[in-house]
Amino acid sequence: MGASLCHAQTFLFILLLFSNYWCSCLATNPIATSANNKDYIKISCDTTLYPQLCFQYLSPYADKIQTSPKLLANTSLSIALSATRSTSSMIENLSNTSGLNPTEKAALLDCVEELSDSVYELQGSMKEMAKADSGGSNFKLLMSDIETWTSAALTDDDTCTDGFEGNAMNGQVKTIVLSHVGEIEQLTSIALAFINNYAAT
């Protein structure tokens, strides 16, 4: 009877050691950690208006972001800025192509100006985001500025597309502009959502 009890205790001790080792392996397993990071991105993106686009752009940065609301906001803001710069450059090049009618030319130049403002505002948001620390005394003020500038960038994107409304603008130029600017509007909206979430921490 005593020997059986001893064997049982030994078995339980070995089982406990193995369980602790297994849990430790899971905690440090880079594959498991990477999956957890992607889950965080997926769950966060599901709270935005554009979850699929959000996950498409942010999932490659999952291991950098991990589960940090600040890094999530900062990365999404950086993506929106990069996309806006690229789109602004593309539309500026498009405005210099031959064969445009005067209405198209004017709308494209107006759009370039609006997107230039958007780039400036997103750059300002990025600079302020670098200073923002949820434990800092001026955190709320900085986040309010970032929210204001990012909202202004979103408005500028929307104003750009206003110039392409109406039957006079039906055609390939309108399709290209609305497609590209529509995407940066969505990316900026995603960034603003995560900025708002971080501001609430």
Rank of each mutant, 00 (worst) to 15 (best):
K174I: 00
V119E: 15
A191Y: 14
K140E: 09
Q52K: 15
K42Y: 05
W22I: 15
C111T: 14
T84G: 05
W22N: 14
A73M: 02
M90F: 09
E147I: 15
I91K: 00
K140S: 09
E114F: 05
A152E: 13
Q9R: 12
A62D: 10
L94W: 00
T67D: 08
I91D: 06
I176K: 14
N29E: 07
A106W: 05
Q66I: 14
L109A: 04
S86H: 10
L58V: 02
A152G: 04
F13D: 08
A106N: 05
A62G: 09
T48Q: 02
L192M: 05
Y21H: 08
G124E: 08
M126F: 10
T188F: 01
M90H: 12
V119T: 11
I146D: 06
L72S: 01
F55K: 06
T150K: 11
I146E: 08
S151E: 11
A35P: 00
S89I: 08
E113T: 13
Y120R: 10
V112W: 10
D157L: 08
H7W: 08
Y21C: 04
Y57T: 06
V173Q: 05
A130P: 11
N36Y: 10
L109C: 02
S125N: 05
S76L: 09
I43L: 08
K105M: 03
Q52Y: 15
A107R: 01
N96H: 15
I195T: 07
A62F: 12
N196G: 10
T75H: 11
C111N: 08
A8Y: 12
L26E: 13
L15S: 07
V181S: 06
D156G: 04
T175E: 14
I65R: 02
D133P: 05
L26F: 09
P51L: 12
L81G: 03
